[in-house]
Simulated assay, not measured.
Amino acid sequence: MFLLSDTLIATGVAEWPQPPAPDFWVLLTHLAAQALPAGGTVGALEARRAPAATYGEMRAV
């Protein structure tokens, strides 16, 4: 995602054809590039905190 964001920036610097509203797409891809690893880290930390059920043990839902 960072590569795509930087590519969109480079198209403006090089004066190549750009998509409509390029600033929007640059910001959107940059935010997605930050959110994906952050979400994965939060998910991994939550999975570490959850106690694992042992064999034969049922969790209450």
Rank of each mutant, 00 (worst) to 15 (best):
M1C: 04
M1T: 04
F2A: 08
F2S: 07
L3T: 11
L3I: 09
L3A: 14
S5Y: 01
S5C: 06
S5G: 10
D6H: 10
T7D: 03
T7Y: 13
T7Q: 12
L8N: 01
L8P: 00
L8F: 04
I9K: 10
I9R: 13
A10H: 08
A10V: 04
A10Q: 14
A10R: 13
T11Q: 06
G12S: 08
G12Q: 09
V13D: 06
A14G: 00
E15N: 15
W16T: 09
W16H: 08
W16I: 11
P17I: 06
P17D: 12
P17E: 10
Q18L: 10
Q18M: 15
P19I: 03
P20Y: 07
P20E: 13
P20W: 11
A21F: 15
A21C: 09
P22D: 07
P22I: 08
D23V: 14
D23L: 14
D23Y: 11
D23C: 06
F24C: 04
F24S: 02
W25Q: 04
W25T: 01
W25S: 06
W25R: 08
V26D: 00
V26L: 08
L28N: 07
L28D: 03
L28H: 10
L28C: 11
T29Y: 09
T29I: 00
T29Q: 04
L31I: 14
A32H: 03
A32W: 04
A33R: 05
A33I: 01
A33T: 04
A35E: 04
A35S: 12
L36N: 02
L36V: 15
P37F: 01
P37M: 01
P37K: 01
A38M: 12
A38G: 08
A38K: 03
G39Q: 06
G40T: 05
T41L: 15
T41I: 15
T41C: 11
V42R: 04
V42C: 08
V42D: 01
V42E: 02
V42F: 09
V42G: 00
V42L: 15
G43D: 01
G43V: 03
L45S: 03
L45K: 06
L45C: 11
A47L: 11
R48E: 10
R49Y: 02
R49P: 00
A50D: 02
A50I: 01
P51S: 02
A52W: 05
A52T: 14
A52C: 05
A53M: 12
T54D: 00
T54I: 01
Y55H: 10
Y55L: 13
G56Q: 02
G56Y: 03
E57C: 05
M58Y: 10
M58A: 14
M58W: 10
M58C: 06
R59Q: 09
R59V: 12
A60S: 12
A60D: 07
V61N: 05
